[in-house]
Design a protein around this nucleic acid. Structure first.
Length: 324
DNA sequence: ATTCGAATAT
DNA sequence: CATATTCGAA
């Protein structure tokens, strides 16, 4: 811990005044509890093993800059009256942008993890069948904004289970009705994620929902979906008021099935470890699957890899045609 | 002017 | 198949 930079050091580029919302800071780890920015997330060995470009040291400035952007964006659009008070989180982005060999299919995923520090993760057991608590994992992002200025095509985004989770949670919270790319993107708060990325995924997601709704009901009884909890109900949910006195009654016939807690998107992700380079790397992927039903999760949530990434193209491929 | 979203392209 | 890009509509 050598960094003695105040995270609230930025002087409002916009000259605004409200740069801190005390409520948002409640419960957040102290600056001293966080892993130093200078610490590398990926051990050098692993990095080289997977051809991961080493991350340059990041300075507080970078973080603050990103922070400013997020804050300004949030308040700029006020995220619709519906989005009400959503906590603004910032993700530590991974820098990339120095060298990038562009070849045929360069894919990059925004899933990274930080925080090796152990802390108590509060998890509201999703016992209530109602809506399910919105748990969060976390992701990090990559992509530098100022460095990738112009003439740089971003590599294909890979929707890792983590990202997708985040996506689903946000959509669920917004309610299918209000979930539009821009809003989703903002709430996901993943650095480097673009509206287009979200739009594309959303299109697919909607398709999925449609299928599911259409064909029904319990098709896939056979498989026990582990987390087949696509918390997006067939109807639409709405996350307004968020338990607050803010009672806004949009054209949605649905009351507000949401838990008192305003689903925040926690940041610090649980340290994820990969089994073994050999197991994941190379090309030893498989896809012996079959009895999967439809849960969208299945769309990417391959069994046990908790969410790693690195490298190349997405090894998975499956069909969700509910035929069998 | 912006951005959504279906269609289409990679 | 998964994402990206296009392009007319809101």
């Amino acid at each position: 811990m050598g960094e003695e930079v105040r995270i609230t050091d930025y002087d409002a580029a916009g000259g605004d005044d409200d740069d801190r919302v005390s409520e948002w800071e409640v419960g957040l780890p102290n600056i001293d509890d966080l892993m130093p920015l200078s610490q590398s997330l990926v051990p050098a060995e692993l990095a080289s093993a997977f051809s991961i470009t080493p991350e340059p040291h990041r300075s507080m400035i970078d973080v603050n800059r990103a922070s400013q952007n997020t804050l300004s964006n949030l308040r700029l659009h006020s995220v619709k009256q519906n989005l009400n008070k959503f906590n603004g989180f910032k993700s530590f982005g991974e820098d990339k942008g120095d060298e990038m060999v562009m070849e045929g299919e360069e894919t990059v995923d925004l899933t990274g993890d930080g925080c090796s520090d152990s802390r108590k993760l509060r998890r509201v057991d999703s016992g209530g069948g109602g809506g399910g608590a919105i748990g969060e994992e976390a992701d990090s992002a990559l992509r530098a904004d100022d460095s990738s200025t112009r003439t740089s095509k971003r590599p294909r985004l890979v929707w890792t289970p983590q990202l997708h989770k985040r996506f689903v949670d946000v959509v669920a919270h917004l309610g299918v009705k209000n979930a539009v790319p821009k809003t989703i993107m903002q709430l996901m708060n993943v650095e480097g994620l673009t509206r287009e990325n979200v739009a594309s995924h959303l299109q697919k997601y909607r398709l999925y929902l449609k299928r599911m709704q259409g064909l029904s009901n319990e098709g896939p009884s056979s498989s026990d979906h582990l987390f087949a909890s696509t918390p997006v109900p067939q109807s639409l949910q709405e996350s307004s008021g968020g338990g607050n006195g803010n009672s806004h009654a949009p054209p949605v016939p649905i009351p507000m099935p949401y838990p008192p807690q305003m689903v925040p998107m926690p940041y610090p992700p649980p340290p994820q470890m990969m089994p073994h380079p050999a197991a994941a790397g190379g090309s030893g992927y498989h896809h012996g699957f079959e009895s999967h039903s439809h849960p969208f999760n299945m769309m990417m949530q391959q069994r046990d890899w908790s969410g790693n990434k690195f490298a190349s193209v997405s090894p998975y491929q499956h069909r969700m045609t509910n035929d069998k």
